[in-house]
Design a protein around this nucleic acid. Sequence first.
DNA 1: ATTGACCTTATAGTAGCTTTATAGTTTAAA
DNA 2: TTTAAACTATAAAGCTACTATAAGGTCAAT
Lengths: 135, 135
Amino acid sequence: MRIGQLAQLVGVETQTIRFYEQQGLLPPPDRQDNGYRVYTEKHVEGLAFIRRCRILGLSLAEIHELQSYQDDPHQPCTAVNALLDDHISHVRSQITALQALEKQLVSLRASCNDDREVEACGVLAGISEGNMHQQ
Amino acid sequence: MRIGQLAQLVGVETQTIRFYEQQGLLPPPDRQDNGYRVYTEKHVEGLAFIRRCRILGLSLAEIHELQSYQDDPHQPCTAVNALLDDHISHVRSQITALQALEKQLVSLRASCNDDREVEACGVLAGISEGNMHQQ
DNA sequence: ATTGACCTTATAGTAGCTTTATAGTTTAAA
DNA sequence: TTTAAACTATAAAGCTACTATAAGGTCAAT
């Protein structure tokens, strides 16, 4: 199959596929005489794996790491689990930070209504005063 | 004051200050005869405002928008409040997405322990199977 | 005179693509 | 048969918000 079909099948853009190839995440496929890339079922699986990892928020570097484990299937999978644990704690700290941020934003927003002039805007005043407790 | 002092005062790097100037977020200061930038109290306030907005997660474009409101202080501040409301809902949807992601990651992690080979790793299998319900 | 701390500009790198430019190939319609 | 649409190719730039590097000018102290 050619790049367009692969793209449609997995739901990515053709440029993204070339980009993954260039980044070493997708093996370079064979080429037709005209230079067109020819993909196999392996590539479909590989690309789908990458996309699912991306949906899970893994970086390309982390995906690369997972692929290296797949290439050596008789290792213990401790490292895979550790990678996921790290990622989970990363996601959790992001959530915590965003929740604190939301609180701050909501309280800032509460300091103004829409019936003022910019000059007297509670929101702008709140930012300018700068009594912000980080984290 | 010179750029290094301003940087230390507000807690940013000198390059960041030049970057903000280049992006039109900080007005170009006067120069000494030797070309060194000379900053005033106005710049301290301006830079501190930018930094506080950044801590609140606002983009440089959004900060630029807020500055344009500050430059026209007799408008109603509806737009300021709307900007903040948009930002709050953006933060909230990020939180929601990350919470869903965390759930997914935790359940994936639960499908494996450390006593397997990569070949039999529940995590990698879980990703490859791809029974992922997005959002 | 030279060291060190400071300042200058310009350029490239970061992540993960997306966009644009330019050009060659295939396929289907006119 | 020609021609236009749809596909493919490469290379390079753009996006965000900086950070880092290079190569050099300025200034105070030793």
